[in-house]
């Protein structure tokens, strides 16, 4: 598809800007990276100079930038001194955990949100509708990290049903399917905490979009042909309401990723969000920049996926 190729081509300058901006922002933040390299205690000036020269920190900022860009292009994201590991290894190790958490949260939010929104629209004005709207307004006003702590308090501390930290039993994690179940127990609370806000948002958007479509003329026409309410909902209303819902889901993926930084910290989830949190507190610049770049790429890809879905659903988009 040429459209995809062209969109990817458009993403290149965007990502370039992101990398440059990240670099400049971090270079502009107070705090000298040398301090982290040599330690906080007063070091002899000669040693500081030597470290600076070794890492190219004595060069003007644009030279540093060019070198960084060159490295990024060849896939070298730098070396984390705090972790004594190349950044790419570090990130790849955490990537799976974060993807698992965010995608689960996204799936949960989308499926439940769309289902609740549809039900609320179908039985508009009923107790069900009021319930969904209640969930939607609370969900949207509760901060997710606070919800996470609340969930830990209720389900881990009071009820003791679910673990509160990590992503698997440290001692004697079971094998096979039992291991998978064990893992799910760890996943459930953070995914729920992370998804709730988006579930609320998606339910609200779905309800509003469905109600708008249901009052459209072509719905009346479908009913005049004898189509049942269920068939009207599924064949016409849901499809036509999908565009705004997909847009909201796609464009919020970035926020879910951002939210995962806090949730991973609250639940001790060994993912990228926690890595970001840690690297910020340790001023581990190469890691921070790499994560920011990765998030940007994800957002760009999510937007692209959203647009492709739009085209798949709506024949009017694209051929003009």
């Amino acid at each position: 598809m040429w459209f995809v190729a062209r969109r990817l081509l458009h993403a290149v300058p965007l990502l370039f800007c992101v990398v440059v901006l990240n670099f400049v922002l971090i270079a502009a933040t107070p705090g000298d990276p040398v301090t982290i390299l040599v330690g906080d205690f007063p070091a002899p000036p000669g040693y500081v100079e030597q470290v600076k020269r070794e890492f190219g920190l004595d060069q003007p900022i644009y030279v540093q930038l060019m070198r960084y860009l060159g490295h990024v292009l060849t896939g070298d994201l730098g070396y984390s001194f705090a972790n004594r590991q190349p950044v790419s290894t570090l990130i790849l190790g955490r990537l799976a955990a974060t993807l698992e958490l965010t995608l689960t949260a996204l799936l949960l939010a989308s499926l439940l949100g769309i289902a609740l929104g549809m039900l609320a629209a179908r039985w508009r004005g009923s107790w069900l509708d009021s319930g969904v709207q209640g969930i939607a307004s609370t969900g949207y006003s509760i901060p997710d990290f606070w919800l996470g702590q609340l969930l830990i308090l209720v389900f881990s501390i009071w009820l003791g049903w679910l673990p509160s930290q990590g992503n698997m039993s440290v001692r004697g994690a079971p094998e096979g399917f039992a291991g998978f179940l064990d893992h799910l127990r760890y996943l459930l609370l953070p995914a729920l905490a992370l998804s709730f806000r988006y579930l609320a948002l998606i339910a609200r958007i779905t309800r509003a979009a469905m109600l708008e479509v249901l009052s459209a003329d072509f719905i009346l026409a479908a009913r005049s042909r004898g189509a049942s309410e269920t068939s009207v909902m599924i064949t016409h209303a849901l499809r036509n309401a999908a565009a705004p819902v997909i847009t909201v889901i796609g464009y919020n993926l970035g926020f879910i990723l951002a939210g995962s930084a806090l949730i991973e910290t609250v639940f001790g989830w060994p993912g990228i969000g926690r890595l970001l949190f840690d690297s910020i507190s340790r001023r581990d610049y190469p890691v921070m920049m790499a994560i920011l770049l990765m998030v940007s790429v994800t957002v760009v890809l999510a937007n692209l996926a959203t647009d492709i879905l739009h085209r798949a659903i709506d024949p009017r988009v694209g051929d003009r």
């Binding site: 003329d217 005049s224 004898g226 036509n240």
Partner: peptide, 19 residues
Amino acid sequence: RGAQIGMVFQDPSSYLDPL
């Protein structure tokens, strides 16, 4: 509806599902 009585409407563009 549809079987014994059919109906057509004013603005054919808004009475057809665009998708």
